[in-house]
Design a protein around this nucleic acid. Structure first.
Length: 269
DNA sequence: CTCGTCGTCCGTCAAATAAC
DNA sequence: GTTATTTGACGGACGACGAG
């Protein structure tokens, strides 16, 4: 595989994939001191199973927290790129991702695999093309077909667009970059020509189809992992702020308790 | 300058979970 | 039951930083 050329195994003692478990415990501990011990020892079997099993997604957890605690922001279902959203796309249907090409064009990849390309300098709507990837379900009538292909020799991923243009995704960098290019060569190895599903018969075609599916799955998972990490960060931030709030509350309550103690049992000396 | 360590980010896999 | 999504874990890359 082109992205895995390194076989050296070497593990850092400190991982970026930190566990948020400690923070969760901290929040739980502080919250326990705040609230009465009513729940102590009352864990029924179902709850125990819930604890033992995998916890729900960060989105769910955070949304539960935020419904309990006002002021805690909810994780949105889908979010477009926070900053840098081009003004001429802002009024479009909310895309999942927006990318700017080297030529200044904007590519918005919406849910459902629709790709929108808009030209800068226009009034925003002019020059917009809605494209649908062939592997994202049945395209709507009249949709332009985009052919997704495997990486090319320079380590990029390409979407083939009718009209002799290629949308190229660079393999590295902080954010995936997309470029509109004229194809430099004939279709690279691994490209599946637009063919009806029923016509895939030969072993080579089947293998190509399998490769294409794998590439698509990896691409989707790549994006999912990014999104998951973003949610996790948000979740950890939320827990940290909750810890801070609860610590302040705890301090106040302790002070209050001391004051009340002093009032109720003043020293006779 | 080189080397080792640390922290962070990323892509991938696999398993759990959710959605249909 | 099948498919899609989510997320923990793993391993590699890379930059920052200090020690020699």
């Amino acid at each position: 595989m082109w992205w895995h050329q390194h076989n050296l195994c070497f593990r850092h003692p400190v991982e970026e994939d930190y566990s948020s478990g400690d923070l969760e415990k901290k929040v739980a501990t502080i919250a326990e001191t705040d609230e009465s011990a009513e729940s102590e020892g009352v864990i029924d079997s179902q709850k125990r199973r819930e604890i033992l099993s995998r916890r729900p997604s960060y989105r769910k957890i955070l949304n539960e927290i935020s419904s309990d605690v006002p002021g805690v922001p909810k994780i949105e279902e889908e979010r477009s790129e926070e900053e840098g959203t081009p003004p001429n796309i802002a009024t479009m249907a909310v895309p999942t991702s927006i990318y700017q090409t080297s030529t200044g064009q904007y590519i918005a990849i919406a849910q459902g695999g629709t790709i929108q390309i808009s030209n800068p300098g226009s009034d925003g709507v002019q020059g917009l093309q809605a494209l649908t990837m062939t592997n994202s379900g049945a395209p709507p009538p009249g949709a332009t077909i985009v052919q997704y292909a495997t990486q090319s020799a320079d380590g990029t991923q390409q979407f083939f667009v009718p009209g002799s243009q290629v949308v190229v995704q660079a393999a590295t960098g902080d954010m995936p970059t997309y470029q509109i290019r004229a194809p430099t060569t004939a279709l690279p190895q691994g490209v599946v020509m637009a063919a009806s599903p029923g016509s895939l018969h030969s072993p080579q075609q089947l293998a190509e189809e399998a490769t294409r599916k794998r590439e698509l799955r990896l691409m989707k998972n790549r994006e999912a992992a990014k999104e998951c990490r973003r949610r996790k960060k948000e979740y950890v931030k939320c827990l940290e702020s909750r810890v801070a709030v609860l610590e302040v509350q705890n301090k106040k309550l302790i002070e209050e308790l001391e004051t009340l103690k002093d009032i109720c049992s003043p020293k006779t000396d």
